[in-house]
Simulated assay, not measured.
Amino acid sequence: MNKAITSPLAGHLLATEGANLVMAEWIAEGCAEGTEPMRIAPLHIHREDDEAWYVLEGTLGFQIGDQIVEASAGGAVMVPRGTAHTYWNPKAEPARYLLIMTTRINELIQAIHAASDRSAEGLRKLFEQYQSELVDW
């Protein structure tokens, strides 16, 4: 995670040593028509960290507190710390987006992917280690 410049970004993280900011480009697969979209992340809260998304292609849906919004290509969403949120791809076509996060959020994501205990209780404990709270799995 010592790269200050990367081209292309896809599949890589952009962050510098000692920085508190990480940018990643990700793709969210679409959902079949008539089916409920699958959340990319569970409903959760980061107590001390803000998080942002910029949609490059496609559409992402967000729940931010009690509000449901969609952001299409060129749209951006910012979630302030302390706000429950989740997101998903509501369309059939893939969505390509940038996720701008703190290093702590990136570490939480890496820990989730590496976790052997992915039960609701196991994930709740993991979120707590990163100053976050799992609201709904």
Rank of each mutant, 00 (worst) to 15 (best):
M1L: 06
M1N: 10
K3F: 10
K3H: 14
K3V: 13
A4N: 08
A4V: 09
I5R: 06
T6P: 02
A10K: 13
G11L: 06
H12D: 13
A15E: 08
T16K: 05
T16S: 10
E17H: 07
A19S: 15
A19T: 10
A19F: 03
E25G: 04
I27P: 02
E29F: 08
T35D: 09
M38L: 15
A41C: 12
D50N: 11
D50R: 01
E51A: 05
A52V: 08
A52T: 09
Y54I: 07
V55M: 03
V55A: 04
L56P: 01
E57R: 08
E57K: 09
G58M: 03
G61A: 12
F62K: 00
I68A: 10
A71D: 07
S72P: 05
V77P: 01
V79P: 00
P80N: 11
T83M: 08
A84S: 15
A92S: 15
E93L: 11
E93A: 15
P94K: 10
A95Q: 02
L98I: 15
I100N: 02
I100W: 02
M101F: 02
T102D: 05
T102G: 14
T103H: 10
N106D: 11
E107G: 14
L108V: 02
L108F: 00
A111D: 06
A111S: 12
I112N: 01
I112P: 03
A115K: 08
A115H: 09
S119N: 07
E121K: 10
K125Y: 06
K125G: 14
F127R: 01
E128T: 12
E128S: 13
S132E: 01
S132C: 05
E133I: 07
E133L: 01
V135D: 00
D136I: 01
W137L: 15
